[in-house]
Computed example of a mutant assay.
Amino acid sequence: MELKRILFEVSEHVATITINRPERLNATDDLTRTELGIAWARVRDDPDIRVAIITGAGDRAFSAGQDVRATAESGIRNKVPGSRLHHNVWKPVICALNGMAVGGGLHQVADSDLIIAAEHAELIDTHLAVGNVFALEAAVLLRRMPLSMVMQLALMTKKGRISAQRAHEIGLINEVVPADRLQQRAREIALDIVKLSPATVQASIKAMWATLDVGLHAAHDVAYRYVLQHQLTHPDYREGMLAFAEKREPRWVVE
């Protein structure tokens, strides 16, 4: 299928997904969300892809969220958010936050494993300003940043915007870099992750996200099941230790 709203590239086991509507501040309409679903399915199902980077075209916006004009004219037909968690992608995802992330654009940010931001990037929510409930994005953000900061985004709308530096200070963003270093830095991290066991990485990511659904004691049980299953069933567990003992690079299984 020819993609019209996003760019999708794969190089050295890294897929780069770029929301490509700079003239609309990378706002997502029905077609954009459909194409993001296609891209995430490719990331999930293609064994050659080990890491994904999600970013936006240009330097003004990562994504302005839902295309309000398009929705006002025709309504929403595709209601599935185009983020990795909604498509069961457990390969590592890096968000290269190249500008403002607004409203529905926060899905991609909150649902990523690592977030690298340009210095001028910022988080904004406008759901309440247009009569929409701020809940889906908040459900994940509340697991990654303080309640007071999520309330600030929601209730103060545009005046409650959070800078990249502030988001870094509260632990949401991993690194803040100059804009001209953003894509390079995201790729550097991705290429380091590529060297790890794909199966072990995915099992670890899935286990960590799964533990957020339950309390502490149940989380320990969930985590242990993932650890035990990997140790008992996957050859990379033994291969990693053998490679360390034999002082050589591991030969990971790619499935």
Score class of each variant (00 low, 15 high):
Leu3Glu: 10
Lys4Leu: 14
Ile6Arg: 10
Glu9Ser: 13
His13Tyr: 04
His13Leu: 07
Ile17Cys: 04
Ile17Val: 15
Thr18Cys: 14
Glu23Ala: 14
Leu25Asn: 03
Ala27Phe: 01
Leu31Lys: 05
Arg33Asn: 05
Thr34His: 14
Pro47Tyr: 03
Ile49Asp: 05
Ile49Glu: 09
Arg50Trp: 05
Ile54Phe: 02
Gly58Ala: 12
Asp59Tyr: 06
Phe62Gln: 01
Phe62Pro: 03
Ser63Trp: 05
Gly65Leu: 02
Ala70Val: 04
Thr71Ile: 13
Gly75Pro: 03
Lys79Gln: 08
Pro81Glu: 01
Ser83Tyr: 02
His87Gln: 12
His87Lys: 14
Trp90Ser: 04
Lys91Arg: 08
Gly99Tyr: 10
Gly99Thr: 09
Gly105Cys: 05
Leu106Gln: 09
Leu106Ala: 07
Ser112Ala: 15
Asp113Gly: 07
Ile115Asp: 02
Ile116Ala: 11
His120Asn: 14
Ala121Tyr: 03
Thr126His: 00
Ala139Phe: 11
Ala139Thr: 11
Arg143Pro: 00
Arg143Glu: 12
Met145Ala: 05
Leu147Ile: 08
Val150Glu: 02
Val150Cys: 10
Met151Gln: 10
Leu153Trp: 04
Thr157His: 03
Ser163Ala: 10
Ala164Asp: 00
Ala167Val: 07
His168Gln: 14
Ile170Gln: 08
Ile170Glu: 13
Gly171Leu: 07
Ile173Ala: 09
Ile173Val: 15
Asn174Met: 08
Glu175Arg: 09
Glu175Tyr: 12
Glu175Cys: 01
Val176Tyr: 06
Val177Asn: 06
Ala179Met: 07
Gln184Leu: 04
Ala186Gly: 11
Ala186Asn: 10
Arg187Thr: 12
Ala190Arg: 12
Asp192Ala: 12
Ile193Lys: 04
Ile193Thr: 09
Ser197Lys: 07
Pro198Val: 09
Val201Lys: 07
Ile205Asp: 06
Met208Tyr: 07
Trp209Lys: 14
Ala210Ser: 15
Ala210Pro: 00
Asp213His: 10
Leu216Gln: 06
His220Thr: 09
His220Ala: 15
His220Gly: 06
Ala223Trp: 01
Ala223Val: 00
Tyr226Ile: 01
Val227Gln: 13
Gln231Glu: 13
Glu239Leu: 14
Glu239Ser: 11
Lys247Ile: 04
Glu249Ser: 15
Val254Arg: 13
Val254Met: 08
